[in-house]
């Protein structure tokens, strides 16, 4: 465990000594819970429509596929006209695009970012690497099946998929959201133990709390 995460006694500016346990004090200890949809069907449908038409992507590129997301902001592809925007902070983002191979080191950051996002949230796996490891199938430090670690709503295949493929994929994601089938956040909460066990199996230097928002 890193030195700054260990329990220690700190002396404050006024001379009072107090104990700091970063993992307990700085993070929430409670696991995610299943959040049911709104009770009235028509309200939930309205929300689902709004969620589909306003997708905010977390600006976090994990692999080489991140390069294929940038053209979407440019005049040639212009994803903004479909209500797709990029947000710099996980708190405000709804969609996490895992863009290509995911090394174990990055997986840790990806998990932390994903858990900080608010329910409902969606994960799109981009490229073959997220499905079966792709060209990194025998690598010692990348994960092979993204679905074992985070609840994936949609895969976009290819190596690399073109920006057009991404746009088509986002349209498909919209259809799923409108149909109320994109409940990845609740799936993650239901199967929390299973996901955590999988994550801990590959991340050997696990120096964070089990659930960190």
């Amino acid at each position: 465990m890193k030195e700054e995460l260990e329990k220690r006694v700190v002396k404050g500016p006024d001379g009072v000594e107090f104990e700091v346990d970063p993992l307990r004090d700085y993070y929430c200890q409670s696991a995610p819970t299943v959040m049911p949809p709104a009770y009235i069907k028509i309200v939930e449908e309205l929300f689902n429509w709004a969620r589909a038409e306003s997708i905010w992507i977390l600006g976090f590129g994990t692999g080489c596929g991140a390069i294929e997301m940038r053209p979407l902001m440019t005049p040639r592809f212009d994803a903004y006209r479909y209500g797709i925007q990029w947000r710099p902070t996980p708190r405000q983002a709804n969609l996490f695009v895992i863009s290509g191979y995911l090394s174990v080191k990055t997986l840790k950051r990806a998990i932390r970012s994903y858990e900080q996002m608010q329910n409902p949230k969606y994960v799109v796996g981009l490229g073959s690497c997220t499905i079966n490891g792709g060209m990194y199938w025998d690598s010692y430090n990348t994960i092979k099946r993204l679905d074992d670690y985070l609840p994936v709503d949609l895969y976009i295949t290819g190596c690399m998929p073109r920006p057009e493929a991404l746009l088509a994929g986002f349209q498909e994601l919209k259809r799923l959201i409108r149909a109320g089938q994109a409940e990845g956040a609740n799936r993650y909460a239901e199967q929390f133990e299973w996901y955590k066990a999988n994550q801990k199996r590959v991340i050997h230097d696990w120096d964070m709390p089990d659930y960190n928002w």
Partner: peptide, 29 residues
């Protein structure tokens, strides 16, 4: 601003949708 950059830009009603979506999110901390 989007047209200056030769993009199509967001739909004119996009801000309403963003608002509904943010009010409709299920969890908050």
């Amino acid at each position: 601003a989007a047209r200056v950059g030769r993009r199509h830009g967001i739909p004119i009603w996009q801000n309403y949708i963003d608002l509904i979506k943010n009010y409709g999110l299920r969890s908050s901390i």
